[in-house]
Design a binder for these strands. Structure first.
Lengths: 223, 223
DNA sequence: GGCGAGAATGACCCTCGGTGTCATTTGATG
DNA sequence: CATCAAATGACACCGAGGGTCATTCTCGCC
C-alpha cells in the first residue's frame, strides 16, 4: 500500500535534471541516465540529419543502449525529441496540483506556469529552444507536441475541477485551460523567433503579454 | 494560368456530398466516389473491429480499390476515419474566407461556424457522430483530430489576419481562433455524450452556450 | 469516331517504427 | 550470500507508408 512507484519519481527527477541525485536508488539513476542520453541524442541527431533520416537504431546506438530500451523509455520516436517540452508541462501540472492561488483563475494559472518554469534545471532553456526549433522544421514533431499539449490540457481541466470543487465538465474550466496554454504557446513562438534571447526571463515576459491579450481579444471587432 | 485545379474542387464537392454531381468531370466523380467509399468503409470497419485491427488492405478491399489508391487519397490511415470532421472545418474556413461579419470577432466566428454547418449535406450528422464516437474509443484517431484542428486553427488565424488587415502574429487573433474552436470542441463533447440527440440543431445550441461561457470564464476566481 | 497526352490505378517492392518474446544481466532485499 | 524482481538486449514479426512501373481510363483535339 505504501509501496513507492519509482518510475513516477524518476520522471519528476528528470525534470529537475537531477539524474545523478544520490538519494535515488541506483537502478532509477541508471534509467534516468538512459532517458537523458536518448533525449540528448535525439536533439542532436534530429537537428543534424533530420527526423525522418534518423532511425531508432541510430538513436539507440548514439545513446549506447539497445533499440528495445528506446521503445520502453519513450512511447514514440517523437517523444524523445520533445523531452524539454514535456518537462515543462509536467512541472506545471504538479504546481497546479499543489494548489491554485486565490483570485482570478487565469492569473493563478499564469503564476503556476511561471513558478513551474522557475524550478526547471539550468540546461532547460537551451534544450527547450532546440526542441522548438526542431518542431518548426519537422511536422511530425509539431504534431506530437500538439498531441502532448492536448493531453496536458485535459489533465489541467480535470485538476482545476478537483481543486476548485467544480464539475469536471464546467465549460469555463476547459476554456481557461485552453487560454493559459495558448498564451504560452503564442509567447513561445515569438521567443523562438527571437532566438531565445533573454532566456526564460524573456519568455516569461512574453507570457505575461499574451495573458494580457486574452481579455483584449474579446473586444476586438470587425470593421 | 487559368487552369482549374480539380483536386481542390473535388474536395469541396465531397463536403457537400455531391459526389455524383454531373457538373464535375467524370474523372473527378470517380475520385470522389473512391474517397467516399474509403471513408465509409473506415467508419464501418473501425467501429466493427477497431482501428488497429483494421489493415489498409482490408479497408481498400472493402471499398473495392487498391491499397495504393488509399495511400494516394488520404495522408494517413486516421484521415479516412475523420472525414466528417474534416468536412466541417473545410466549410468553416471557406465561410470565414468569404467574409467576417461586422461586430465582435468571436460572434462573427460563431456565426460562420453555424453557417458552415448549415451547408453540410444531410448525412453529415450521423457521420460526424460516428467519427466522434470512434475518436473517443481510439486514441490514434483522437490524436489525429487534434492535429487536424491545430492546422485549421493556424489557417483561421492567418485568414482572420488577412480579412481584418491585422498583423498575422497579433496575439488576439490566435486567442480568438483558439476560443472559437475550443467552444465547438466542448459543445461537441457534450453532444456526443448525449448520443447526438436533436441533430445538428442541438449541437448548434450547445455551441452558443459554450461561446457564452468564454467571457464568463474570465470572471471565475479561486476561493 | 479515333488518337495522343496525361492522369489515375493496381501490383509489387522496400524501409522502418513499434510490439512481443525470451534469455541474460543487474540492482534490491533479508 | 542467496533469492527475487526489474531492466536490458537480441531477435522475430506486423503493418503503415513511400516508391516504381506497367496498365487502364478520361479528356481535349482532330
Amino acid at each position: 500500500m505504501s509501496r513507492v512507484t519509482w518510475s513516477r519519481v524518476s520522471y519528476a527527477a528528470t525534470m529537475a535534471g537531477m539524474d545523478d541525485d544520490r538519494s535515488l536508488p541506483l537502478r532509477e539513476r541508471k534509467k534516468l541516465r538512459n532517458r537523458r542520453a536518448l533525449a540528448d541524442a535525439a536533439l542532436r541527431l534530429f537537428a543534424e540529419r533530420g527526423f525522418d533520416a534518423t532511425t531508432l537504431e541510430e538513436l539507440a546506438e548514439e545513446a549506447e543502449v539497445s533499440k528495445s530500451t528506446f521503445t520502453r523509455t519513450f512511447e514514440a520516436k517523437e517523444a524523445a525529441g520533445i523531452e524539454a517540452e514535456a518537462e515543462l508541462w509536467a512541472a506545471f501540472l504538479a504546481t497546479v496540483d499543489a494548489g491554485v492561488p486565490k483570485g482570478p483563475v487565469l492569473d493563478g494559472l499564469h503564476r503556476a506556469l511561471a513558478d513551474a518554469m522557475a524550478g526547471l534545471d539550468g540546461t532547460w532553456d537551451a534544450r527547450f529552444l532546440a526542441t522548438r526549433r526542431l518542431a518548426v522544421a519537422e511536422p511530425a514533431l509539431l504534431r506530437y507536441v500538439e498531441h502532448h499539449r492536448a493531453r496536458v490540457r485535459e489533465q489541467l481541466a480535470a485538476g482545476l475541477a478537483a481543486r476548485l470543487d467544480l464539475d469536471a465538465e464546467d465549460l469555463r474550466l476547459h476554456v481557461l485551460a485552453e487560454l493559459a496554454m495558448t498564451a504560452f504557446s503564442i509567447a513561445g513562438r515569438a521567443w523562438v523567433r527571437g532566438g531565445g534571447a533573454g532566456g526564460r526571463a524573456s519568455l516569461l515576459a512574453g507570457l505575461a503579454d499574451a495573458i494580457r491579450a486574452v481579455p483584449a481579444s474579446l473586444d476586438l471587432a470587425a470593421e
